[in-house]
Structure formats: structure tokens, C-alpha cells
């Protein structure tokens, strides 16, 4: 038995110590170079601080719909709050039969779920502010945390433009980041595609809802789990505008669930990350209307 345990341990160590990357598809993306220009001071004066809430949820999480309703109420009361719903954990694993047979988990969501040490659901990160040993806050804390965030320290503004080419099923996002106040740490810009109006199963307070409407569900990242740098070393300068273009093909759906996104139901969220503190500096969202 001891030998068997040793063998299993060795195989486990070997198994988790190799990251084999599938190179049958291109491992890289082509992106446009970052265009650097002077800021528009008038625009900078209009920028308000927005709050980014990542709701960690799952279709078999019984109290998650209560959390979603709480967030919806917060968003309705405060339009500066932007929410992304991330399906994760074993409660989001698909079952063999409907209504829970669809996998809404994503590779990016799995990474964030792990990196932010989310232990149970529903939890939400708020601007990725650290909460002692984890980043997730329970649903009773969300409103209070959001209210306590200082809105007067606006360090950056984000503008998003997009175009959709349905013939090749590609969406292009042109994102500009204007640095309003000095940011001392390196930053990265992350862009995600999320989808509204996905009708699928959900447990809601121990009741199976067959046609629950899932909103703001993350589908894929345009440029990696933590985005990409705007400059070679990630450092950005005050009163400078950085603009870059990102493309995404939505023809074949995304990893795990191969269900293509209904692009007209989607929105694009772009957020700027402080790579030292991990906190979200600014966030912006735009609905895709075609």
C-alpha cells in the first residue's frame, strides 16, 4: 500500500509538473501596435471612477441567483458598477442531463477562480481589492464595500470602440486608455467578451429553474487572463493616451462550451490592472449593438 501511495505521489508530481501547450493552433495572436498620443484634457475632466465586480457563480449554486439579484439592484442604483459573472468551481461542472448539461466554465474563469482564492459561492471581487487572505467578499458585504470606494482618485479613463464583421465572425475592439494621474506600478489592459440573455438551467434557493436568464457571463478574454502591457515594461505616463486594437474570432465558440456567442447579446468590458497590487484601476463597458 505504501509503495502504491508512493507511485501515485510520483505520478501526481510528474503530472502537475508539465504544461504541454497545444501548438496545432497558433499559440500567439496578432495585435496592433499601441498608439501613443497626448491626452484630451476635456475628456479627462469627464471621467468618473467605475467599479468592477466579478461575481463568481455557478448554475448549481443555490444562493447564487440571490447574489445576482443583489448585484442587479446595485447596478440599477449605481450605473458606475460593472459586473462580470464567472462560472466556476465544481458547482459549475456540467451534468450528463439537462438542465445542467452545459459547461459555462472558461479557462480564464478557472484561472481567476484559483488565483483569487475563491473558496465558496457566491463570492465577488470588487476592483480586486484584497480581503485578508482572499479577494472574494460575501454577498452581504458587496454594497458596503462599493460605497466605501474612493471615487475621487480617478487615475485613468477607458474608451472602447468596436466593429463586428459578421462575414468572418470577427469582432474588433479599439480601446484607449488615458492616464489622468500618475500610476507608479506597471499596468496591463485586459479586455473580455461577456454575454447577456443566456437561457439555461439554474438552481435558485433549492428550486431547479429550467429557463433561467444568465447575464454578463464571461465568454472569453481578448488578450489573456491578465491582459497585455501598453508599453514594453508596463509603466505608463501621466497625460498620455494609449490606444490598441484587439481582434477576436467568435465563429467556433470558446473553450469548454463550443456554443458560439450570440454577438448581438454581448458586451465588451475593458479594465486596467495594477500589476503590483492586482487592483483594478478603471473599468469600462460597451454593449455590442449591430
Amino acid at each position: 500500500m505504501k509503495r502504491f501511495a508512493l507511485l501515485i505521489t510520483v505520478l501526481l508530481i510528474i503530472g502537475v509538473s508539465c504544461d504541454k501547450i497545444d501548438t496545432s493552433k497558433e499559440v500567439f495572436k496578432t495585435i496592433g501596435p499601441v498608439e501613443v498620443s497626448a491626452w484630451n484634457e476635456d475628456y479627462a475632466r469627464t471621467v468618473v471612477q467605475k467599479i468592477y465586480v466579478e461575481e463568481f457563480t455557478a448554475h448549481r449554486c443555490t444562493f447564487c441567483p440571490t447574489g445576482a439579484r443583489e448585484l442587479k439592484a446595485i447596478m440599477e442604483a449605481d450605473p458606475t458598477v460593472i459586473v462580470t459573472a464567472i462560472h466556476c468551481s465544481s458547482l459549475a461542472d456540467p451534468l450528463s442531463k439537462p438542465p445542467f448539461n452545459i459547461n459555462y466554465k472558461t479557462p480564464m474563469g478557472d484561472v481567476l477562480h484559483k488565483d483569487f482564492n475563491i473558496k465558496d459561492l457566491p463570492k465577488a471581487t470588487i476592483n480586486r481589492i484584497k480581503n485578508e487572505n482572499e479577494w472574494g467578499f460575501g454577498r452581504t458585504e458587496w454594497r458596503k464595500i462599493i460605497e466605501n470606494i474612493n471615487r475621487n482618485n480617478v487615475r485613468a479613463g477607458i474608451e472602447i470602440q468596436y466593429s463586428v464583421n459578421k462575414s468572418i465572425q470577427e469582432i474588433e475592439a479599439k480601446v484607449s486608455v488615458t492616464i489622468i494621474k500618475e500610476i507608479k506600478n506597471p499596468v496591463q489592459l485586459c479586455i473580455v467578451l461577456q454575454e447577456n440573455g443566456i437561457i439555461s438551467g439554474q438552481i435558485d434557493n433549492n428550486v431547479n429553474i429550467l429557463e433561467y436568464e444568465h447575464n454578463d457571463m464571461i465568454r472569453v478574454g481578448f488578450n489573456g487572463n491578465y491582459g497585455t502591457k501598453l508599453t514594453q515594461n508596463g509603466m505608463v505616463m501621466e497625460q498620455i493616451k494609449y490606444t490598441s486594437t484587439f481582434k477576436l474570432n467568435y465563429e467556433n465558440g470558446f473553450s469548454y462550451s463550443n456554443i458560439p456567442a450570440k454577438i448581438d447579446n454581448c458586451n465588451i468590458v475593458a479594465y486596467l490592472l495594477d500589476m503590483e497590487t492586482k487592483e483594478v484601476i478603471q473599468v469600462e463597458k460597451i454593449d455590442v449593438k449591430n
Binding site: 504544461d19 489573456g224 487572463n225
Partner: peptide, 16 residues
């Protein structure tokens, strides 16, 4: 010339 990026998820962290 255009820019390419290998996203971090395609960079193997564990190399054996």
C-alpha cells in the same frame, strides 16, 4: 511589421 503576443496562458509555467 505588426505585433504579436503569446498570451500568458500559452506560456508553459511548468516545464519538465
Amino acid at each position: 511589421r505588426c505585433q504579436g503576443v503569446i498570451p500568458s496562458e500559452n506560456i508553459p509555467q511548468n516545464v519538465a
